[in-house]
């Protein structure tokens, strides 16, 4: 069985907001180390990977590995019934087809109980190889959100170029183009500053639609890391106290 007590429902609410438009149904894989989710979008262009560590919960018990197949739309609706600062307890019995959620109000005696149907989801688990990326950029997550939202007004794609100069985001739309250069901030470390590590010049093009979607995770962390190597998927990573959310995005190819 699973019993997990989360100090604030906000974390789960924000996580669901970060993935619900990318993936419809997914397994939350629970084991004694915590809860993991890995899912690819229908078009096999993006993959999201979430980890919530057992140590991030006020109380956590999972006797044996338990996949909780969830419709993310339904889960989002049930979580909307929780206030951000409610304590959130999720429970599931072994082989059960129901997930129960309890929201305990912080400053009153209100206790709300909800149940959600679980589903069998037959999804392959993918092996994500460890990659030595050619470039690693760390920046304020709000800055990344602004850049991808701004450029998505102009065109469908962004070219990300990492060089000695810094990291440049370039959009070349039909009617307008734009580019934003971020230089490494020498006097300011993350979360406020920008750090750039580069072994090799990187030049890759990505769909802005996906990046705008990923940027929703800025509610979970003040810092985002972009990991890039030529011709391999981009890794966009947000770390927070209880775990992380990582997105992989296949680059656009050819001319």
């Amino acid at each position: 069985m699973l019993e997990a007590r989360l100090a604030e429902a906000a974390i789960l609410k924000r996580l669901l907001d970060s993935i619900k438009e990318l993936v419809t149904d997914a397994n939350f894989e629970c084991n004694e180390e915590g809860i993991n989710l890995q899912a690819m979008d229908n078009s096999h262009v993006a993959l999201v990977s979430v980890k919530l560590s057992a140590s991030g919960f006020k109380k956590y018990r999972c006797d044996r590995p338990l996949p909780l197949g969830v419709n993310l739309g339904s889960f989002t609706k049930v979580l909307k019934c929780a206030k951000d600062d409610d304590v959130c307890i999720i429970k599931a019995a072994d082989d059960a087809d129901i997930l129960s959620l309890t929201y305990e109000a912080r400053n009153s005696d209100r206790i709300a109980e909800y149940e959600m149907k679980l589903m069998d989801i037959d999804a392959d688990t993918l092996n994500i190889p460890d990659t030595d990326y050619d470039a690693r950029v760390s920046m304020p997550s709000a800055e990344f959100t602004r850049i991808v939202r701004d450029l998505s007004q102009l065109g469908e794609s962004v070219r990300i170029e990492v060089s000695k100069e810094g990291v440049r985001f370039i959009s070349d739309g039909e009617a307008a183009n734009g580019n934003i250069l971020l230089r490494q901030t020498d006097d300011d470390a993350p979360p406020e500053g920008v750090t750039i590590e580069m072994n090799q010049h990187v030049n890759l093009t990505f769909s802005l639609k996906y990046l705008v979607n990923f940027a929703k995770s800025s509610t979970l962390s003040n810092v985002v890391q972009l990991m890039l190597s030529n011709d391999v998927p981009l890794l966009v990573s947000y770390d927070f106290n209880q775990g992380h959310i990582r997105y992989y995005l296949a680059p656009k190819i050819g001319d």
Binding site: M40, S43, H44, V45, A46, L47, D124, T125, L126, N127, I128, P129, S157, T205, S207, V232, P233, Y248, A250, P251, K252, I253, G254, D255
Partner: peptide, 14 residues
Amino acid sequence: SKQQGRLDGFFSVK
């Protein structure tokens, strides 16, 4: 213009 690539091929099924 560039075509959208896919993740298949980068990640193997466990």
